[in-house]
Design a protein around this nucleic acid. Structure first.
Lengths: 213, 213
DNA sequence: GACAAAACAATATGATCGTATTGTTTTATG
DNA sequence: CATAAAACAATACGATCATATTGTTTTGTC
């Protein structure tokens, strides 16, 4: 969790020198391009050269900031996960004191997060990491932080729907995993209405279970 | 849905000539090797050469049966989905008249299906197909048949847990997608006990909702 | 048993992969 | 402003990719 590694992916931004500014901007630009290519062509179909062209930078520039492909993928994952956390922070303030917060979080996270190219890119990275030990080692801790971050953000907002924190986390996990699987399975068939119906069924199920208690 | 294409992946086996037998055996052998490599190395890390070596066949033999990589991947997907359907047919007869059939189906499909190398291979194919239009066209109808097949097999067995067929299908979809997402997300972290807990939470949620009605 | 087609095999080919190498420009520091 | 390091750029390299090509062996049909 330590922040020793100074020139990691875009984090906070306190008083940067011109060089650091340039570097951060370049890294962000490359990560965005990488995410775009990953979402469009998948991990298998994305090469360094493609990212270079999409970002409109030289190969040398990319290599300077990301010596290996794993470095690039790791930074891209960090960028994407960071943006997701930001989204959850925003939705939290938006839905404060909304009685149907859970339903809103689920529906909106589906529309604004999971069906997004950004999440498609993240999915590619996660699946690639499954069968690549060195990449998995890099990604796993960031993914864990992401999950913990979401749970921390949602804790207060969604307290009413579960009997304890553990159950709430389980519900959040199921929702998150369901949406990912929905993309992989039914997303392949392209029936968006059907997917929305599944989300609604899920919301109904949780609501029904909560009412029972 | 027509069966015109005679020499597709291993289907039924009614009276084959020696040539057809050899062919089917070779195709099965190659598909098994492909699944093994996909599960171990992912789509991105699996090459034709690797499959050739894993199956211990010549490149020419593979090319004869699968002219392109997409042909191989399609046949492998069909093989894997077919095995999955077979599993559901077996579990159906095993759990007939079991009052806790739903919980058993969920828990056992997690252990015996989703956490299996075979499903890892299928996951690789599904994700790859997301960003590969031609592959998606080949896979999508087979995936749809698979989903429909599961729903058909489970219809009678799991009738009690839902108020109608539509809700039952939604529950099956959520369960299936959740397990897939669980592999992609929490599977990366390797905490198997946590994943089993999530499955149990899901079973409890559905049971609670069913009891309410 | 002759002939054709299917099955299997070995090697070649052009493209593309990730990375290494080497050079030039820009920025920070004394 | 001198010097070193960071940032950016261009080209090269060996490996590997999917597939094409050209052969040989096995099987089915007449």
């Amino acid at each position: 969790m330590l922040m020793s590694n100074a020139r990691q992916a875009p984090a906070a931004a306190p008083a940067l020198s011109r060089q650091q500014e340039k570097s951060a901007a370049m890294r962000l630009r490359i990560c965005k391009a990488a995410a775009k290519r990953l979402a469009a062509n998948g991990y298998h179909g994305t090469s360094i050269k493609q990212v270079v062209e999409a970002a409109n930078v030289s190969l040398g520039a990319l290599q300077h900031h990301f010596p290996s492909k794993d470095d690039l993928v790791e930074a891209t994952a960090e960028y994407l996960l960071g943006r997701s956390i930001t989204w959850f922070q925003r939705i939290k303030t938006e839905l404060e004191k909304d009685r149907s917060a859970f339903a809103e979080v689920m529906r909106r996270s589906w529309e604004e997060q999971f069906t997004t190219p950004d999440y498609g890119a993240l999915l590619e990275i996660l699946v690639a990491a499954r069968s690549d030990a060195s990449l998995r080692k890099r990604i796993a801790p960031k993914l864990e932080d992401w999950r913990d971050g979401i749970e921390a953000e949602m804790r207060d907002l969604l307290t009413p729907i579960a009997k304890d924190a553990e159950e709430l986390n389980a519900i959040l996990t199921i929702g998150r995993c369901m949406m990912t699987g929905l993309l992989v399975h039914d997303g392949l068939l392209g029936d968006e209405q059907h997917m929305r119906n599944v989300i609604d069924a899920w919301v109904g199920l949780v609501a029904g279970s909560a009412r029972k208690q």
